[in-house]
Design a protein around this nucleic acid. Structure first.
Length: 426
RNA sequence: GGAGAGAUGGCUGAGUGGCCGAAAGCGCCGGAUUGCUAAUCCGGUGUACGGGGUUUACUCGUACCGAGGGUUCGAAUCCCUCUCUCUCCGCCA
C-alpha cells in the first residue's frame, strides 16, 4: 500500500504510474473518502473531548437533579460517538479498499511497457548446450528414468499434482541443501516456515486470498490459507514489529511448500511440472532501512545470489528487467532469471526460474514493519525485498533437460553430487 | 485436552471505577559540576491518527496499559471471548 499523504500530494505521478502499469484508478474517490474520514475523526474527537469534560464534572456535582441531567447528557454523547464510529469504520474500509488497488510506484530505470520495449534482457550467462540428438523435454526424461509419477498425483489430489520419485527426491533435497548452505554462508538467517498463514498476512504481502480470481487455496471456516511462497511467512514473521535500524539489513531465507490454484493455465507451455499446484521453494527475504539506495543495493545482491546458484549449476540463463505493466502490485522493480530449457517448445525456450522484487515500503506499510533511526524522530517503514533462491520444480526441469545424455541418462550437476550421492541418473 | 497463575511504557515494576498516558527505579538523551576512566545534581525521554502552524522547530486534540467485544456519564481497573507466557496433570509423532 502507498502512503495516503503521498498519493494526495502526488496525484499526477500516481496516476501516470497506474497508467504505465495498466491499472485504472479513481483518485477522486480516494480524496473524497479521505476528506470524509478526516471530518469524522475531527468530529468524533471533539465529542470524546466533551465527554471527558462532562464525566469530570459529574463526581463534583452535588445537586442530584443536575447530576441526573449531566448523566443523561453523557448517555447522549455516548450514542453520538458510537454512531460516528460506525460511519468512520465504513469510510476507512472504503478508503482501504481503494488504496489496496493502487500498485507501488515504479523504479525510474524500470522499462515502461507503453514505450513498446516491454521487458528488457539485461544479460546472458553461459550458452545453451549443444546436443547431437533431439533433446527430450523433462516429462519424457522423467518417464524414462521413473522420476515423476503424474498419474498417482492426479489419482490422489487431482490434475496439477505429482509425486517426485527415486533420484528426483534426492535431487529435490540436494537443490534445497545447496541453496540453504549457500545462503547461510551469505549471512541469511535460515527458516523452515509454516505452510499456512492468516489471510491478513497474505494481504499484507499483497495477495488476495479469497477473491473470485484468487491464486490462493484457503481453509474453510478459518482465516488461514495455504501459502503461495515463503515470502508470505518470512515477511509476516516481523509483522507489527519495530526494528533497530543498526540491525538492518536483515536477510532471511525460508524453506516452504508453495500452493497455487493456477486457475485456467493449461497447454504445452505448462506441461509437466512447469506449472503445478504444489512445489517446494527456498526463498530469500530482506528488510532494509527506508532508503531506495539501500534496498536497491540488496536487490542487486539478491539477483547476484540467484545468478551464482545457476552459474554453479552450470545452466545457461538470461536476466530480465520486468516492464512496468508486468510488475505485481507490490513490486517497485523486478528482475527475473530465465533458464534455458532445451526440451521446452520446439527447439528449447527460456523458462522463468527465479524472480526478485524490491517492494520498497509497500508491504511494510500494510504489515506495520518499521524501524527506528537514532537521528530521526518517530519510526519509518522499512523496505522489503524477496527473491527465489531455488524453486524446485522449475530447477528440476532445467537440470533434467540441460544435463540429459544421448543414452537417456542424466548427469548430476557437480555441486549437487554430495547430496544426490550419484554422478548420473539412469 | 484438564487445572491454576499471569500479560502495564526500551526494561523492571506500582496501580481494583473518575484527579492515570500512567508512580518509582533502571536505561537512554541534553545540561551543570567535579580533573582522575566514574560519581553527583537538574531537565528531558512512547506510538498512531487528526487539527493549527513560516508544513522545519513547535503546538492543540483524540486513541492506545496482550487482542477484540460488553457494562458505565466515566474503564489499566468490572464482565465475556480470544491469543500468548509460566506451573502441574493427561495424551502424542
Amino acid at each position: 500500500m502507498l502512503d495516503l499523504q503521498f498519493v494526495c500530494d502526488n496525484r499526477t505521478e500516481v496516476e501516470s504510474n497506474c497508467a504505465n502499469r495498466g491499472i485504472t484508478v479513481d483518485l477522486n474517490r480516494i480524496l473524497a473518502l479521505r476528506d470524509q474520514r478526516n471530518q469524522l475523526i475531527a468530529a468524533t474527537d471533539q465529542l470524546r473531548h466533551d465527554q471527558k469534560d462532562l464525566s469530570a464534572q459529574i463526581p463534583k456535582e452535588k445537586d442530584p437533579q443536575h447530576k441526573q441531567a449531566l448523566i443523561a447528557k453523557g448517555k447522549e454523547l455516548r450514542e453520538q460517538i458510537a454512531a460516528n464510529e460506525e460511519k468512520l469504520r465504513d469510510a476507512e474500509t472504503g478508503l482501504k479498499e481503494e488504496m489496496m488497488r493502487l500498485p507501488n510506484m515504479t523504479h525510474p530505470d524500470a522499462p515502461v511497457a507503453t514505450d513498446e520495449t516491454g521487458s528488457v534482457t539485461l544479460r546472458h550467462w553461459g550458452e545453451a548446450p549443444k546436443f547431437s540428438f533431439k533433446p527430450l523435454d523433462h516429462v519424457a526424461i522423467a518417464e524414462k528414468l521413473d522420476l515423476i509419477d503424474f498419474e498417482a498425483g492426479t489419482r490422489v489430489a487431482g490434475h496439477g499434482f505429482y509425486y517426485l520419485k527415486n533420484e528426483a527426491v534426492l535431487l529435490e533435497q540436494a537443490l534445497v541443501n545447496f541453496a540453504l548452505q549457500k545462503l547461510r554462508k551469505k549471512g541469511f538467517t535460515l527458516y523452515s516456515t509454516p505452510d499456512l498463514a492468516k489471510d491478513e498476512v497474505l494481504e499484507g504481502i499483497g495477495f488476495a486470498p479469497r477473491g473470485p480470481e484468487t491464486q490462493i487455496y484457503s481453509i474453510q471456516n478459518s482465516d488461514l490459507s495455504l501459502v503461495a511462497t515463503a515470502e508470505i511467512t518470512l515477511g509476516g514473521a516481523l509483522k507489527d514489529q519495530i526494528l533497530d535500524a543498526d540491525k538492518l539489513p536483515m536477510k532471511f531465507a525460508g524453506l516452504s511448500h508453495c500452493f497455487r490454484t493456477e486457475a485456467g493455465a493449461h497447454g504445452r507451455a505448462t506441461r509437466g511440472i512447469y506449472r503445478v499446484h504444489q512445489f517446494t521453494k527456498v526463498e530469500m527475504f530482506g528488510f532494509t532501512g527506508p532508503d531506495v539506495a539501500e534496498s536497491d543495493k540488496l536487490h542487486q545482491e539478491i539477483v547476484a545470489i540467484e545468478e551464482e546458484i545457476f552459474q554453479e549449476l552450470k545452466i545457461h540463463y538470461r536476466v530480465i528487467d520486468t516492464a512496468s505493466d508486468d510488475l505485481g502490485g507490490p513490486a517497485y522493480r523486478k528482475f527475473d532469471l530465465e533458464a534455458w530449457m532445451p526440451g521446452r517448445g520446439d527447439a528449447g525456450e527460456y523458462g522463468e526460474v527465479t524472480s526478485a522484487s524490491n517492494c520498497t515500503d509497500y508491504q511494510a506499510r500494510r504489515l506495520g514493519i518499521r524501524c527506528r533511526t537514532p537521528e530521526k524522530k518517530g519510526t519509518q517503514f522499512v523496505h522489503t525485498l524477496n527473491g527465489t533462491a531455488i524453486s524446485i520444480a522449475r530447477a528440476i526441469i532445467a537440470v533434467l533437460e540441460n544435463y540429459q545424455q544421448e543414452d537417456g541418462s542424466v548427469v548430476v550437476p557437480e555441486v549437487l553430487r554430495p547430496w544426490v550421492g550419484e554422478e548420473r541418473i539412469g
